Simulated assay, not measured.
Amino acid sequence: MFVLARIIGGATKGNVSLAYSVMTDISDEKSRAKGMALIGVAFSIGFTIGPAVGAMFSRWGSTGWFAASALYALTLAFCNIIYFYIFFKETLPETKRRASVASGLSQAWELINPRSLFSFSPVKGLEKEERAKLIQLGRVYFIYLFLYSGLEFTLTFVTHHKHSYDSMAQGRMFSFLGLVMALMQGGYVRRVKNGSEKAMANKGLMMMIPAFILIGASETNWGLYTGLTFYALGSSMMVPCLTTLASCHGSESHKGTLLGIWRSLGALARAIGPIVTSIGFWSMGAEMCYIIGGLSMLAPLIMLQSC
Rank of each mutant, 00 (worst) to 15 (best):
Q170N: 11
L177V: 09
H163F: 14
S164T: 09
R98E: 11
Q170G: 12
S100Q: 13
R97H: 11
F142K: 04
H163I: 07
A102C: 01
Y165L: 09
F142D: 00
S167C: 15
E110M: 15
G171T: 12
G178K: 00
S119K: 15
S106P: 01
F146R: 00
H163T: 04
G125E: 02
P93E: 11
G171N: 14
L155Q: 10
M181C: 03
N113I: 03
V123N: 03
F157V: 10
I112Y: 02
E129K: 09
L126E: 00
T95L: 10
F146N: 03
T154H: 02
L147Y: 03
L179A: 04
E130H: 06
F157Q: 13
E110Y: 09
G138Q: 10
G150I: 00
L145P: 08
V123L: 06
E94P: 11
G138Y: 05
Q107R: 14
S106T: 07
S167W: 02
S121V: 07
Q107F: 01
L151G: 02
H160R: 15
L111Q: 10
K162I: 03
R139C: 12
I135G: 07
K96Y: 10
T91Y: 04
T154I: 05
S167Y: 13
S164L: 05
F174N: 02
G150C: 08
P122A: 07
E152T: 03
L155E: 00
E94Y: 13
F174Q: 02
P122G: 10
T154K: 09
K128W: 00
L155P: 01
S100K: 15
S119G: 03
F153A: 11
T159M: 04
R97C: 13
K124C: 03
A132P: 11
Q170E: 09
K124G: 05
F176Q: 04
S175V: 11
D166G: 13
E152W: 06
I143A: 05
T156D: 02
